[in-house]
Amino acid sequence: MDQNEKLKMLFKISLFQTKSNISSKWIVFYFIFFFAASYVSLSFTHETSKAAVNLMNAVLFIVPLASLLYGTIYFYNNIDYIIFILSFPVKRPVIYISLFSGLLIPMAIGFLTGIILPVLLFNANSFLSDFYVFLPLIITGIYLHLIFISFALLIAVINENKLLGFGLSIFIWLLLSVIYDGIFLIALNSFADYPLEYFSIILSVLNPIDLSRIFITINLDLVTLMGYTGAVFHNFFSNIIGCLIIFTSLTIWVLIPLFLGIRFFNKKDF
């Protein structure tokens, strides 16, 4: 099987899975959710950046949770299909990547159209500038899909027990979106007498949800509220090197679970 053939297969499987997922009621629901969230936040304020702040909460809250749950459910519900495809002369990593992109593409389409359509509906004339305000949100949204779908697949691959898999998904979500910040807050308060700027930079680089939130916040100029911390942050994150660090870190967050997933998938007995 040459590279070309592999890509063709990858494309084919992803395409059919996308086809299957895109009309699934969950993805439709997902689209409706973001459409409503975007529509409501745009209608509450005339300012796109304010709407983006409101939307940010929805994105940071829902995208990881939905990706984790939908990803694990999808794997468990389609295990017979996956086994069947595995009996074909196709390399396992190709199938794994196809599974991944077959989940990513429909979810990302639901998310993107949901967020962007209301912007178009509200003011088609200023679409480009509004789109620019939403761009950090969109980029991090896509990254969060990438990260948490690869987590979802990893969890499903290493756990045959559905309940355990769900539990683990919800735990990872809680851990990264709430518990981590709780520990973060406690740490900041316990060490309030020390200079904490770089400590907090490191802590936030280690959590993709925090990193996404900070990336959006910086781009929405809210960062000035952070006072001195903000200045350190702004200097750290808003130059090219900072951007590189943010995206390298986010990319590592995608690649680690993805590679682990492929590894376990390669060795897995079905």
Partner: peptide
């Protein structure tokens, strides 16, 4: 090898023709 598994399923919403097209694309 041609394999007929005991339980057979494909992702929801795919038609029979689409499934045939998919499996055909997976074999040389």
């Amino acid at each position: 090898i041609g394999y007929m598994p005991q339980s057979f399923s494909f992702p929801a919403n795919l038609t029979v023709n689409e499934i045939l097209e998919l499996v055909k694309s997976l074999r040389s």
